[in-house]
Each structure stands twice: as C-alpha cells, then as structure tokens.
Simulated assay, not measured.
Amino acid sequence: MRKLPLLIAAILVLVLAFIPLFRQQNSIRQQEEYPDKDKIIIVYDNKALSGFKSAWGFAALVKFKNYTILFDTGGNGEILLNNMERLNISPSSIQYVFLSHIHGDHTGGLWAILRENPNVTVFLPATFSEAFKERVRSFGAKAVEINNPREILEGIYTTGVMFPVGEQALVLKTSKGLIVVTGCSHPGIVKIVERAENITGENAYLVVGGFHLFGAPEREVRAIATSLKKLGVRRVMPCHCTGSRAERVFAEEFGTNYVECGVGKSVSW
C-alpha cells in the first residue's frame, strides 16, 4: 500500500511533463485547420526576429479572403526568398504582387519572385518606366497599370497613384474597418489614410508599413499620431523607413495597439 502514493505521484509527474507537448500539438493542429486566416506577415524589413535576415527595404505577405498578395519585394531577392523559406511561404502560393513605388528597396526582389513563379499579376503604378513593365511581361507575368483609385479584387482597393514619387497603397475592407498597407508613405501617411477612407467611405482600423518619418521631430510625429487617431485608426505597425524615434512615439501614443514590426512578425484582425 505504501507504493500506491509513489505510483500516483509518478503518474502526475508524467502527466505534467506531457501537458506542454499536448498544447504544442493542439497549436499545430489549429494552424493546420486555419492556414488561410487573414493576416499580414512581414517578410522583408530593416529589423528581423532571430533566424531571419534584415536589410533596408520592405515586403509583406498579405493573406485576405482567398487572396495571397506579396506587397512590395524588398531590395534583394536572395534575402527575400530566404526569409520566405524560413516562414514556409512558397513563391508558388503568391497570386498577386502589389508594388507601391519604383524605388529599388521595394522592387529589387521582384525578379527573384518572377523566376520562381511567373504566373502572377503585378499591380504597379502607371508611372513605372516602360522598360520595367516590359521586363515584368518578359517573365510571362501580367502587368496591370494603376492610375486612379479603384477596387482591384473583391474587397481590395488601391489608393491610386499619389505624388510625390508616384506611390500607391493597398487597402483591405474588413469587418473591423480598413487595413491600409503602405510602402514608404512619400505622399504622407495621413494623406494616404484619408484617401483610403474617401475611396471606401469607411474608417481605417490598422495601418501597416513604412511611414517615412526617420529624422522627423517628435512634435511632428505626435501630431501625425493624433491625426491618425482622429481618422479612426486603432492600431499601427510602423515599419521600414519610419525611424526608431518615430516608432517610440507611436508606441507611446497607441500603447497596446502598437504592433512592433520586423521580419518574421505578423498581425491579424
């Protein structure tokens, strides 16, 4: 009879030891059951989680409804593909590529993607050079030129080309509000969000991407954060060219609704 308490104790130890494994397996099963959950995954950025490569530039994989869109392509195709591989993202899964603007840190990785998967549609500003457009088509990909704001896929919009630079942003129409994805925000992040709201008639919920505020004074950044809140923006994920000082200000202004950016990170809604 004395052995019974020892046996019970041993069984409890074994059960406790296997609980983390059961939880891990359940988490994996949930990921398998919901592989297409709407989310944005950062695949190229100046910052990265351990195991990923960082570089100056930006790219994000957008999974929304039944669409898989690569927003921008970073500056280096090898780094982009390496990060995607570590995230188990196959180039063949990409249906559309959305290019925000012509700068090389947003378009440089495109050719590596097209070599792996030419069966994509590339949405690009009409202001891109004819040589660039022809090179896209030379891979067998379809190039769709964008001028004005419009719906490009069900529930997915482009702001149309905005100046300076000639930049477009991606807008997703969700049940929580608009998700606005930006490349560098050369036209101004507030103007981009205003354009997105004017196009759809809805408020923005989440803004992700480069805000182009490195070097901007703190007072200016706080004013921008305030303007975004007034437009209805609830959450922000500043990336790439936002700048560390501006990121700190946004973190203070949005608190728990601030999402830190970096390769390997994702945001859902």
Score class of each variant (00 low, 15 high):
A251R: 15
K133N: 02
L7T: 13
R137H: 01
E260V: 11
I69H: 00
Q25R: 14
W56P: 01
H240A: 14
A131M: 06
A143Y: 11
N148V: 03
T182K: 09
I224G: 08
L114A: 11
V136N: 07
D72W: 01
N88W: 03
I179E: 01
I19H: 07
V43H: 02
L16V: 08
Y96F: 15
L61G: 04
F128V: 09
V180C: 05
I199Y: 09
V120K: 09
L124A: 11
E194A: 08
N46G: 15
T73E: 08
N88G: 03
I179Y: 08
T68G: 01
V190F: 03
M1A: 13
F18T: 10
A216L: 11
K142Q: 12
I224S: 12
W111N: 12
K65Y: 05
S90P: 05
K176H: 12
F52R: 04
V97H: 07
Y34E: 13
V193N: 07
F64Q: 00
G210T: 07
F128H: 12
R245K: 13
F250G: 04
V165Y: 15
T242D: 11
I189M: 06
N26S: 15
P164T: 05
A131R: 12
N147C: 02
N88K: 13
T256G: 06
T121K: 15
V180Y: 02
P5A: 07
A225S: 13
R234C: 00
K265V: 11
A251K: 15
N88P: 00
D36S: 13
A126T: 09
V122M: 12
M162A: 04
Q30P: 02
P91I: 10
R86V: 08
G109V: 06
A225G: 04
N26L: 15
K191G: 07
E218Y: 10
F139L: 02
N198S: 14
N83W: 06
L213C: 11
H103N: 11
L87S: 09
A55I: 06
G140N: 08
Y34V: 12
P5F: 09
E85V: 04
G243T: 07
K173F: 10
H186L: 13
K3A: 12
P149L: 02
P149H: 02
S129Y: 06
R29D: 12
I69L: 06
L21V: 14
S175H: 14
A196Q: 04
P20Y: 08
L80G: 04
V236K: 01
V171G: 05
F128D: 12
T200F: 07
I146F: 05
H212T: 06
L228C: 05
L7H: 05
I199M: 10
A246V: 02
E252Q: 13
G74P: 03
W269D: 09
L21G: 01
